[in-house]
Amino acid sequence: MDGLAFDIAHLLAGGLVLVSFMMLYQDRLYALLNVFALQAVVLAAAVAWQARIQEAHHLYVTAAIALVFKAVIVPWALHRIMQRLGVHREVETVVSIGPTMLAGMGLVALSVVLMLQLTAAADNPLAREDLAFALSVVLLGLLMMVTRRNAVSQVVGFMSLENGLILAATGAQGMPFVVEISVAFSVLIALIVIGVFLFRIRERFDTVDVGALDEFRGDRQ
């Protein structure tokens, strides 16, 4: 593998991690959606680059799905849902931004150390480093899901987590296409379910803040 191809793949995968960090410090929901769209664009570029250097042309489809579906349709739909519901536009956090960022750095360090040490025997350096970045994105997505209270930002956290999974799947040489379709498909299903939930929750509440639902826990009656 020549140096430039490697460097570009590295840059794009690293960019994905960087955008994940940017999502952590957003305090407005609309801004968060914009950053998510940016992440999807970076993902599409990363996947397309992998398709080129692996000469795996079916990966272009995955890249296109990421670009059209995740960068355009999903943010747009969530935007509309939020407008129609009149949701609070602030991101409500469980833990404040500073500690969350520190925890995020810890998670990235953890995943890099873990992945690079454990896969030292593997012969493909690109796959190894891609995997380390992908795990970082997955963990940052998880972190976002647990430190946010709005349903919308949890959904965004979940989708950013899926972006990490797609990066991992495309980094694995020759991973069957079945899996990519399934990942894209699961996002679609996830969105439908989520959409249904948001609307149903709206039927009963004036907020999609999941914290507000806690008081209805069966055990606290």
Binding site: A190, I201, F205, V210, L213
Partner: peptide, 25 residues
């Protein structure tokens, strides 16, 4: 579609998705 049922389904969905994402990884 009661409050409790929606919260339970949401929690199940979020935690289940995290589980399934880790399993895919």
């Amino acid at each position: 579609r009661t409050h409790e049922a929606l919260e339970a389904a949401w929690k199940y969905f979020i935690l289940g998705s995290v589980g399934i994402a880790l399993a895919l990884f």
